Simulated assay, not measured.
Amino acid sequence: MREPGRPPVVGEHPDPAAGPDRMTVRVTAAPVVPLDLLCASGTSYFGRPAVPYVPGVQGVGVVEESGVLPAGTRVWFATSAGMAPGDGSLAERCAVPDADVVPLPDGVADPAVAALGLSAVAAWMSLTWRARLQSGETVLVLGAGGAVGQVAVGAARALGAGRVVALCRSDAAAERAARAGADEVVRTGGDVAALAGRLGAACGGAADVVVDPVFGEAATAASRVLAPGGRLVNLGGSGADTAEFSSAALRSRSADVLGYTNNALTAEQRAGALTAVLGHAAAGALGVEHEVRPLDRGPEAWAATAAGGVRQVLVPA
């Protein structure tokens, strides 16, 4: 990334080096995610990043040099590329803080782990930690065709939800949500009252938990179908930065509107969530549909992510 707000280019960059509390990893798979684009925009709440830098906030690889793990250990890792000075995962090699590395079990291929990553952590923790999902409850997932949404659908099912309803905008997203395991898929469109009516009908009257990476009118409609004691967890604003809620509706149902960010997790919470998700992924219970491209086609993956396409994962050329 040479200039914030412009696409990255493929090129040579100095090799990373291990150091105190940092290891080097040979990258085997790394996703391009919306957070990468946000950080690189130069207009986010993280501020303007120092350039040039290698983007990529997460990846999968093999330890090369470390003071805490044997060389050859297969790991998932996180970086602060674009949020703080330093380089990220969209490269052949990466230097990573020891605390941001999670050794991986067998059973899930590297590109599939990369596609899951922090999106899966967010979906899992939104359901378990923030929403306190109980077996038999009804879950409504907004934006269910995206990476977070696909995992939320599968995770809700794995956690014992009684019914899982998905809200999607496009045909392709609806198909992904259905393949992820949604009992019913509702399409966006019409006014908020009409959308709330369709969501209520699909949920069998009310939703106990709403997973919301969208906000805007979708969240407004979903808030109107919350069950007594219902919980709406917002973890993104891909649709809009604001939503309108009825005080009477929230108070009459003693409903909760909760915020979520992965940045609030401890390293132990993040590792535990990823390990749990990968166990279900190995059993075929959840996943994120993705497209694999070689590293030298990184700009194409960047453009596809900006266009809202399927999750892009880069692997060594």
Results as ranks from 00 to 15, higher is better:
V192M: 08
G146Y: 00
V186T: 06
C168E: 06
V148P: 05
A144N: 11
A182Q: 03
A156M: 09
R176E: 00
D183K: 04
A194D: 13
S170T: 15
L195V: 10
V151H: 07
G189M: 12
A155I: 03
G145I: 04
C168M: 12
R157D: 13
R187T: 09
A173Q: 01
V148I: 06
E184Q: 08
A193E: 03
R187M: 10
G160I: 07
S170W: 05
D171M: 12
R179Q: 14
D171R: 14
G189L: 14
A172R: 04
A166T: 00
A182V: 05
G197S: 13
L195H: 02
A182P: 03
D183P: 05
A166F: 01
D191G: 15
R187W: 11
D171T: 14
R157E: 09
A152N: 13
V165A: 07
L199C: 15
A174I: 05
G162Y: 02
G200V: 14
G197Q: 06
V165E: 04
G197I: 12
E175I: 10
A147S: 15
L167Y: 00
S170L: 15
L199I: 13
R198L: 15
V192N: 08
A196V: 09
L159K: 10
V165I: 12
A152C: 07
A180V: 06
G162V: 04
